[in-house]
Design a protein around this nucleic acid. Structure first.
Lengths: 347, 347
DNA sequence: CTGTTAGCGCATTCAA
DNA sequence: TTGAATGCGCTAACAG
């Protein structure tokens, strides 16, 4: 690969001139410009972004911490993120933590070493971890789909409680009173959605039976197990709200194996509206999240933060610092996208 | 973020000493070592990998070109890749080309600018494109799951023809003679799998009716359309081999809507064994590919190529070059993993 | 064993 | 407008 020096020599100019025409940073006479362009063309020159990063202190790379890329939900988020970052000329580095908290620290370090310009977290972190990370660095961070409240770290997602509320309300409107819940095991998401369930039940004057509440990790297999447990608890709900589509699919599978018919004998409602929910039979009624859009919005926000930051760094101490630097940061700290109910065949 | 200079000053040593203890590249007295470690600890120093990359000419980054991250098959490949690269301390940058050939060139340039150490392609390229890219650079390349024959570019995947052959043979063994095919539209994969279909048919003395062959892009929706077309062609096959699970699911959906029962009235067999195939009802019989394993193997191979290359660069012209440099490269150029038939409920 | 020095490829001051 | 010189943070000769 040719470098700037070789181009300069070939074009018969100094390296600064080459740099200037490449970046358009200062005027260069048409003549020299042409000579440089020609040399660039002939030698197929591409500026070394490593060297640029070093000097500009900007990598144009963002990191995405994801629990599991092979999970459909996260893969879609990633796809949204990638779409926006690519447009803005950022690369994305993925960090798959396999739902493993230990990896987390390792990856944060990795990203700091690599000097990513910003990070999007799709992963359930504890608030403490996030605060600690905040202390370590000024790297912009945004949470996508993980509604943790940490000041200074914006969130992009939906109204989790409201969405869960809507799901359960739908069940209630359809006449169900005995409603079970399969929810995630000590995650912020699970807890929020459970909260929505509880509010909906109590707002409609329905009581919650403890044996209708089951916890399990988010997967088809665990959903199956959870449903087994639910059914073995004696009394039988007429509907079940599952906190994710995977769980719902597993739970339906179980119901099917027990000879229950959906939705005749028992209804199900899921959450997320990932591809799977359109494909199972009967098709799963669920809460739709604009997943890809969340990814896009998160990426947009992050990039905005990055560019604002680098601008403010450059301007620090100059006359232009008119005191309005952190004006709009407040209102952007929570971007809530709209969810919706998708009625299909399981209620 | 502190840099090497600050650590050196704090520890009261030279920057080379700091560098040496960080990399263990040369012996350092225990005393200085401790002083350095303490300084590193206190200041939370992390070497700037950008600067290291610049001088070492190694980014420890690999690029993965993927048609669509949100697609389950590719997401799984990616997950396999990530697992191995993370272990070997490589980062992975994703390049989502959205099945769009134009993006391709842009991404290749991007990766060259960023000086990734190697590239894994999950994308259907033309052989010409690959050859051209080979000319442009010496960056190691490996194809995963895309069986294109280009000398110097290794491939990791399964025996596509053989797997398709097995799928169709299974149908035949079950007594089917009228077998339809839904296959991909001018992709290497589609063509290879069609080839397997044809061989299986002719080996078993079955004739292929033209109206049983339908092309469509790979997705549930297109699978549905293709099936519609197939059914409207007059005579009706008793079984259909779909070149991907998505197509199969769509096709089954269509059969269902037409009042056909699976597998009583018509059988289906898919290909890939992605998650969806275990979840549809009836569960899809299909050809299992060790998807994640393919990703892992591709990553292993790529890293091996990278390290071999950087070693050979360093050794060039030295006494150690005993002539065996490219000995084993031949036999590694095609890694074929085993596929298998997963009998479920659609045949 | 340790420190000094010279770049890696580039952007950017400072003079001209 | 242009070029020479400086340095981003680091590694690797080179000399002690």
């Amino acid at each position: 690969m040719p470098n700037i020096k070789m181009i300069a020599r070939k074009a018969g100019v100094s390296i600064s001139t080459v740099s200037r025409v490449m970046n358009g940073s200062k005027p260069v006479s048409p003549e020299l410009q042409k000579r440089v362009y020609d040399a660039v063309q002939q030698m197929n020159y591409k500026p070394n972004s490593i060297a640029r990063s070093l000097i500009l202190k900007k990598t144009n790379l963002i990191g995405v911490v994801v629990p599991d890329v092979s999970n459909s939900f996260h893969a879609q988020l990633l796809s949204g993120i990638e779409e926006i970052t690519a447009q803005a000329d950022y690369g994305v580095m993925i960090c798959n933590v396999y739902r493993n908290m230990k990896q987390q620290q390792k990856y944060f370090n990795l990203m700091l070493e690599r000097h990513v310009d910003g990070i999007i977290l799709l992963h359930e972190n504890t608030i403490e971890e996030l605060k600690e990370f905040q202390k370590m660095t000024t790297t912009p961070l945004v949470l996508a789909s993980v509604p943790l409240e940490v000041s200074g770290i914006p969130f992009v997602g939906i109204d989790e409680i409201g969405a869960a509320y809507d799901a359960v309300s739908h069940l209630i409107e359809k006449g169900h009173k005995e409603i079970g819940l399969i929810y995630g095991d000590c995650t912020a998401l699970g807890i929020l959605r459970k909260e929505g369930y509880e509010r909906a039940m109590s707002d409609h004057g329905l009581s919650i039976k403890k044996e209708y509440l089951t916890q399990c990790p988010c997967s088809v297999a665990y959903g199956y197990q959870a449903m087994e447990q639910l059914l073995s608890s004696g009394s039988q709900p007429t509907a079940v709200f599952c906190v994710s589509d995977e769980m719902a699919v597993g739970a339906m599978d179980c119901a099917y194996d027990k000879g229950l018919r959906v939705p005749e004998d028992i209804s199900f409602i899921g959450f997320d509206d990932i591809e799977i929910s359109q494909v199972v039979r009967p098709r799963l009624t669920t809460i739709h999240q604009p997943i890809k859009e969340i990814g896009k919005e998160a990426a947009r926000l992050l990039i905005e933060m990055i560019e604002k930051k680098s601008r403010s760094v450059k301007t620090t101490g100059f006359d232009r610092s008119s005191g309005c630097e952190q004006a709009s940061s407040k209102e952007e700290s929570r971007i809530i996208l709209k969810h919706s109910l998708v009625e299909r065949e399981t209620v």
